[in-house]
């Protein structure tokens, strides 16, 4: 995917959120360019969720949450930061795995 985003992910500037979108890690310095790229990514995600939710007569947030489950269960690399269901920013390390949101079914 977008190399700038994966670099920012690795650098701990941004991370996946339980609501299915990318978020800015508090305290990180975010350039206008990175901000634009994250917003672009999230617009595209929201458009995907909206279209798919409409097809499934589900709500957009439900669709977003479903995708978040998949992402939390497999797409957060060691060292990356993420925002858990409670809204706290965590970092996946070798010792503490990703806190998968409660609403996810495994």
């Amino acid at each position: 995917n977008d190399s700038a985003l994966s670099a920012a992910r690795a650098a701990g500037q941004i991370g996946e959120q339980a609501d299915g979108y990318l978020g800015f890690v508090p305290g990180a310095t975010i350039s206008a360019d990175l901000r634009g790229r994250v917003e672009q990514n999230n617009i595209r995600r929201r458009a995907l969720y909206t279209q798919r939710a409409t097809q499934r007569s589900a709500s957009v947030n439900e669709m977003a949450a479903a995708v978040a489950c998949e992402v939390f269960q497999g797409r957060i690399a060691v060292g990356e930061r993420y925002r858990n269901e409670g809204g706290q920013w965590r970092q996946r390390t070798a010792s503490n795995p990703v806190e998968v949101p409660g609403f996810c079914t495994d």
Partner: peptide, 14 residues
Amino acid sequence: PYEITEQARGMVEN
């Protein structure tokens, strides 16, 4: 649009 101007990136997509 963002390929025409960066200022459109994160404003107008798809």
